[in-house]
Design a protein around this nucleic acid. Structure first.
Lengths: 159, 159
DNA sequence: GGTGAAACTTCTAATAA
DNA sequence: TTATTAGAAGTTTCACC
């Protein structure tokens, strides 16, 4: 694992790319008053260091008809079944995130569905997994995402 | 809101861009055996329709020293305080997502922190918000993200 | 480390089909 | 709607600070 030490310039590059990954390097260069070559080298380094893992589109799932979000807490019969159940959970594409957690639940996941009916199906699928004792659902009425940029700013303030 | 009807080609374009937003349109064109101009027009249309909201980098927060993830359920004294509390919560940059939920909690959020000590601080901040009755924390021991691509495939199968 | 310029690749908009 | 094309723009490398 490469040693990495991000400076103010790296920070600013990330800041711009976090908002729009297709921002031309020449634009970034102009803004930061450095050469496009430098931007290129810096980005490449951050990629090689594994800081930048990849890039992805942000899609509006509501417009695709998938407006329903819920969190489902999963209770297992035995903790030792965690790995097995997690593998089964990961086979359900509508489960977008799964966490092994301490606290109330053994596994905790987020699902993305079309509507309540569809969500019900997914939750039933989860319930049906061998080793799952019961589940507890929390339906999201409203999602508010904090800007990645703000987290980054806070992280960089401390680096 | 524009009417949108994505076909197989749009789907495949999204599929490629979801993995890497900087894939050159000419590469996409070659793969799909269409012209780069067509790719360009299609992407633009999806942006205008609001399907593609934006693009963002995926960063390795562990490498930045922020490996700690927890979910915090928030209980309010009165449901009517939801809006106010949500606003306060959104001021904490380490809270990356917040949901208003049905079920056990009133508000449910995800936090990203350096370590347990840092997480404790954030949770105390949450607890201190006026109107918050108490909180319940679940610490993530392991996160497994399902590929966005798989969700997309499932969505497209049904469209 | 960074730069600036050259060589190469890609984008984009207009035109044509 | 899609394809072509040519000028504009962006990327990447490299010799030189």
């Amino acid at each position: 694992m490469a040693k990495f030490r991000l400076d103010e310039v790296d920070h600013q590059i990330l800041d711009i790319l976090i908002d729009n990954t297709r921002t031309p390097f020449t634009d970034i260069a102009k803004k930061l008053k450095i050469s496009a070559g430098t931007v290129h080298v810096r980005v490449k380094k951050m990629e090689e260091a594994g800081i930048i893992v990849g890039s992805s589109l942000t899609l509006d799932y509501k417009k695709l008809g998938y407006a329903f979000i819920a969190y489902v807490g999963v209770f297992l019969q035995k903790t030792s079944q965690t790995k097995f159940v997690l593998e089964r959970i990961n086979e359900i594409p509508f489960v977008t995130v799964a966490h092994v957690t301490t606290g109330k639940f053994n596994i905790f996941c987020k699902i993305r569905a079309k509507d309540t009916e569809h969500a019900k199906q997914i939750i039933f699928e989860l319930d049906d997994i061998e080793g799952v004792y019961r589940t507890e659902t929390m339906i999201s009425l409203e999602e508010s995402l904090n800007d990645k940029k703000r987290l980054m700013h806070s992280i960089f303030k401390e680096l």
